[in-house]
C-alpha cells in the first residue's frame, strides 16, 4: 500500500525538528539550510506551515529532467533524484509548480524529498503529529472521521 506525507499546519509549533531530521538523514549533519522540508512562519498571523514535495503522479520535475536523473520509486511513489546522473542544470527547479525541488550549491546537484525510502524521518521527528505518513488513498480519513463523529450525534444521544 502506498503512503503519503500528510501535513496538518494547525498542529505545527514551528520547532523545525522535521528540518533537523531531514538534514541529518540526508546530509549527515544538523542543517535546516539543507532540509527537503521547510517550515514557514507567517508571523503576523501566528501560523506555522510545513511544506514539501507532494510526489505528483505526473511529476513535472521528472518530465523536465533532460538526463533522466529523476525516476519513480515504484514502491513508495517517490520521485527520486540520482546524484550520479544529475548535472545540476536546475530545469526541474523551474518545472516544479510548488518550488519543492531546490539546488544545493555545495554539491552541484538538486535535492528533493524522496520519502526516505518509505520511512520519512520528518514524520517520526514531529513532536505534535503535524506531519504524518498515511495511506495515500485515504489522506482525508482523519478529517472524515471528525465530521462523521459530529453527524447526527444529537439524534443518537436522544435515542
Amino acid at each position: 500500500m502506498q503512503k503519503s506525507l500528510h501535513i496538518d499546519p494547525d498542529k505545527c509549533t514551528g520547532c523545525l525538528q522535521c528540518e533537523l531530521a531531514c538534514s541529518h538523514v540526508n546530509e549527515g549533519v544538523f542543517n535546516p539550510a539543507k532540509s527537503r522540508i521547510k517550515v514557514f512562519n507567517f508571523h503576523d498571523q501566528g501560523r506555522m506551515v510545513p511544506y514539501t514535495c507532494t510526489q505528483c503522479d505526473e511529476a513535472w520535475c521528472m518530465q523536465a529532467c533532460p538526463v533522466d536523473a529523476i525516476t519513480l520509486d515504484a514502491e513508495t511513489g517517490a520521485k527520486v533524484v540520482s546524484d550520479a546522473l544529475c548535472v545540476g542544470c536546475k530545469v526541474c527547479t523551474i518545472a516544479c509548480p510548488f518550488g519543492t525541488v531546490n539546488y544545493n550549491a555545495s554539491t552541484g546537484k538538486v535535492i528533493k524529498c524522496d520519502l526516505c525510502g518509505g520511512d520519512p524521518e520528518c514524520a517520526k521527528a514531529c513532536p505534535t503529529a503535524a506531519i504524518t505518513y498515511v495511506d495515500a488513498n485515504w489522506t482525508g480519513l482523519d478529517r472524515m472521521r471528525q465530521w462523521a463523529a459530529k453527524t447526527d450525534a444529537g439524534a443518537q444521544a436522544e435515542a
Binding site: T13, C15, L16, Q17, L20, Q45, G46, M48, P127
Partner: peptide, 19 residues
C-alpha cells in the same frame, strides 16, 4: 491567545502568540 509556538528544536513549545 492565537496559538502556542516553539523556539528552535523545542518539543515543549511554551511560547504564546497573541493579539
Amino acid at each position: 491567545l492565537v496559538t502556542n509556538a516553539a523556539c528552535f528544536g523545542c518539543t515543549i513549545a511554551c511560547g504564546r502568540i497573541s493579539t
